[in-house]
Each structure stands twice: as structure tokens, then as C-alpha cells.
């Protein structure tokens, strides 16, 4: 019994130490005078591998989720004779919830795991040590550009996701099931507000971007530099980041729309 309490205490201490290490890592990576000439190409490179490479999966998922929303929404709403409300239903679900959240989950799976594996591999092959011995700070050189890339990319991806999703809902609802074209858009416009719905969605996706990228980088940077360690860290990135996103989503939703 005492042993179990001790183990719990140890686990608590470890997680606090882990969070502290992650915080130190991030501050050391981001604080300091920026060197635009050197960091711009690095940022571009990372925006490419983190953002551009995730675009396909985001567009495809967004389209399908929007189409499913259109189909499901229609079958429910038509019972109440309220199929005119399909537009706002699709748009609000996407803008407030599905856009930021599903993008963050897909991002954690696609880009987050890749970031962890990449940095873990750099650690295992002594590339990070080697940078340090060359008097180049790996936090500034490797971590920082990846962090900014993640932070900039995810809100863009979330906006694309929502836009494509709404178009998917339009395809199914209007083109296929015959909801009135004008009503679809006008009822949507009457119910969706720029400041309230779209801005809050963007704020959500910025928060998620911060958390997911941070977790991915921290897991990679602090992994055990062996093949087992890297694969564990990668799994842990996806799990931790997904849970963090879902938990934070509840908190944010309560604050914004509660």
C-alpha cells in the first residue's frame, strides 16, 4: 500500500519535472534575438513539411466530413421540416468544433508524429549532439523553426478544413438532396457570425497548434535515443496530443459558447 502511494508520488514528481523540462525547452528555443536571415529559409522548409504536406489529408477529410454532415443533418432536419437549417448546422459544426478539433487530431497524427520521429532520429544518430559540439544550439536551430511552422500552419489548415467541409455539405445538401440553394447560404449567413463563430474557431486552432506542436517537439527532444524509445515517443505524441486537444476543446468551448 505504502509502495503504491510512493509510486504515485514518484509519478507525480516525474510528470511535473517533465512539464518543467518542456517549458524550459520551449522558452530556451523561442527567447533570444531572432536572426531573420538564417531562420527564414528554415521556417520555409518546415512550413513545407509540416503544413503543405498535411494539406491533402486535410482537404480530403474536410470534404468527406462536410458531406457526411450534410447527409446526416438532412435526414434529421427533414423530419421537422427544417431542412432550410442545414446550412447553419453544417457551418456551425465545422467552424466551432470539427474544423479546429479534427484538424488538430489529424495534424497530431500526420505532422506531430513525424516531428517526434524526426527529432528522435536526429538525437539517436547524434545529430543534435553534433550541432551542440559545433556551437549551434539545437533548440534554436531545430526546435524553434518547427514550432513556429506548426503554429502558423494549423490555423491555415483548420480554415481550409472548414471551407472545404462547408462546400462538401453544400454538394450533398443542395446538389444532391435538393435543399434550396438560396436558403442554404442565406440561412447560414443569418446564423454564422464572423466575430463569434469564425474568430473563436481560429482562436481554438491556434491554441491546439501550440499544444500539439509543443508536445510533439518535447517528446522527440526528450525521447530515449533508441529505436524502441523513438517508437514509444511517437505513439505517446499522438496519444497525449489527442487527449490534450479534446480536453482543451471542452474548456475552450465552455469559455466561449457556454
Amino acid at each position: 500500500m505504502l509502495n503504491k502511494v510512493a509510486a504515485l508520488g514518484q509519478a507525480t514528481l516525474n510528470s511535473i519535472a517533465g512539464a518543467g523540462a518542456a517549458l524550459i525547452m520551449l522558452t530556451r528555443a523561442l527567447v533570444g534575438k531572432p536572426q531573420l536571415r538564417k531562420s527564414w529559409p528554415l521556417l520555409m522548409q518546415q512550413m513545407y513539411s509540416v503544413g503543405v504536406m498535411s494539406l491533402i489529408i486535410i482537404v480530403v477529410s474536410g470534404l468527406f466530413i462536410g458531406m457526411v454532415l450534410g447527409l446526416q443533418g438532412y435526414t434529421i432536419l427533414v423530419d421537422f421540416g427544417a431542412e432550410q437549417s442545414l446550412g447553419p448546422m453544417v457551418a456551425l459544426s465545422l467552424l466551432r468544433e470539427l474544423g479546429p478539433v479534427v484538424t488538430a487530431l489529424l495534424f497530431a497524427g500526420r505532422a506531430g508524429s513525424a516531428l517526434t520521429a524526426e527529432i528522435g532520429l536526429m538525437k539517436a544518430t547524434e545529430q543534435l549532439s553534433s550541432l551542440e559540439m559545433m556551437a549551434v544550439d539545437p533548440l534554436r536551430r531545430v526546435i524553434a523553426p518547427r514550432f513556429w511552422a506548426g503554429l502558423y500552419s494549423m490555423p491555415i489548415l483548420a480554415a481550409v478544413f472548414s471551407a472545404v467541409g462547408i462546400y462538401g455539405g453544400y454538394l450533398v445538401g443542395v446538389r444532391w438532396l435538393g435543399v434550396d440553394d438560396g436558403a442554404f447560404w442565406s440561412v447560414m449567413q443569418a446564423n454564422v457570425e464572423w466575430g463569434h463563430d469564425i474568430m473563436n474557431g481560429i482562436i481554438k486552432s491556434v491554441v491546439f497548434a501550440f499544444v500539439v506542436t509543443w508536445i510533439a517537439l518535447h517528446k522527440g527532444f526528450n525521447c530515449t535515443p533508441t529505436s524502441v524509445g523513438i517508437s514509444k515517443a511517437t505513439t505517446s505524441t499522438v496519444v497525449t496530443a489527442s487527449l490534450a486537444v479534446l480536453g482543451l476543446d471542452f474548456v475552450l468551448t465552455a469559455l466561449m459558447f457556454g
Partner: peptide, 14 residues
């Protein structure tokens, strides 16, 4: 560190 350098076992090329 600019005055020293190290050759790692794996080479550690980027």
C-alpha cells in the same frame, strides 16, 4: 566549442 570539434561514432552527418 568553436575551438574544438568531435567526430561521432555514427558520423552524425545531417
Amino acid at each position: 566549442r568553436k575551438r574544438m570539434s568531435m567526430l561521432f561514432q555514427s558520423g552524425a552527418l545531417f
